[in-house]
Design a protein around this nucleic acid. Structure first.
Lengths: 156, 156
DNA sequence: CGGAAGTTGTTCAGATTTGAAAGAACAGGT
DNA sequence: ACCTGTTCTTTCAAATCTGAACAACTTCCG
């Protein structure tokens, strides 16, 4: 807070993480789109719904999981609904809310895309890592995330 | 390539990296915007130009450094030009090209924003890491980046 | 109960981003 | 000089994303 500079090592780490995670995502999204008619956002929606009990989630919960602004999710689900991947249903116990529900077609699309996508993740990311790297990354980013959400909670 | 699944450890690492680097960037961009009238994209443009010899860069080079699609950079520089942060000049030796040039106002904006931004990076990212973490991240992401650009070169 | 205060999801307008197409200029051979 | 193929940047329209404002509910107290 006082020392508002970064050492060369700190700066190198920061830039390496930001730049290559960005390039990594772009590459993986390109792979996904070439192989499947799905955006990475589409894919992530499908994953979240597939993992959710009843294959359905409140819009708000889904937005949180995806780190999407509410209006973005409304739009996202709108386009997926047009393509038949999801349905929107009113929420039974809270009449303000609605739920996104995975359709059979959505599940099929996910199943069709998953192997290729996971292969891409393996090829571009996992293959470069040994078990120690994996553990280190998980530990580091999990901790960062915890601190971030703690900070977010405080500032309200 | 054959085994197109990920182990729980692999999946956990992948999700942790993607999610928290995303949240991290959002948080840091929020900080920057609250403190400065600049987007993270604006800031990165300013940094690249400030570090470049003559404080100027060809559009294409800048686009590569920022991982921006060409048309995106055109737009980006357009908005920054309106705000007086950069200028556009025709490239002397190649009449197809143009250069983005940092203005005094742009440099001043960068200098004004940098301490706060770097403080934010330290607070949300660096502070959670010890020296070993830093070294591990740099090593890992540098290697990933090398592989990615190698793969990109091949596929053309 | 009654109503202030908070939630939830959508809508709308405007900003940004993408991708394809085009225009201009370079480079290499012929 | 003259093609032919490339590269560089911009333009344009369409797709996506953001943030503020809103309508419909819910909750919480008094």
């Amino acid at each position: 807070m006082r020392d508002e500079k970064l050492s060369p090592e700190e700066l190198a780490a920061w830039r390496a993480v930001v730049e290559s995670s960005q390039r990594l995502l772009i590459t993986i999204e390109d792979d996904l789109r070439k192989a499947s008619e799905l955006t990475l956002a589409d894919y992530n929606v499908l994953v979240q719904l597939a993992e959710a009990p009843g294959r359905r989630l409140r819009m708000g919960d889904l937005a949180t999981k995806l780190i999407f602004a509410p209006s973005r999710l409304t739009y996202q689900i709108g386009t997926m609904e047009k393509r038949g991947l999801v349905t929107r249903e009113p929420c039974p116990d809270d009449r303000r809310g609605s739920e996104a529900v995975l359709t059979e077609a959505g599940l099929a699309a996910l199943r069709a895309a998953a192997p290729g996508h996971l292969g891409s993740v393996r090829r571009h990311f996992i293959e470069d890592l040994d078990a120690a790297d994996l553990a280190a990354l998980t530990k580091i980013f999990t901790r960062i995330d915890e601190r971030l959400s703690a900070a977010r909670t405080e500032s309200r």
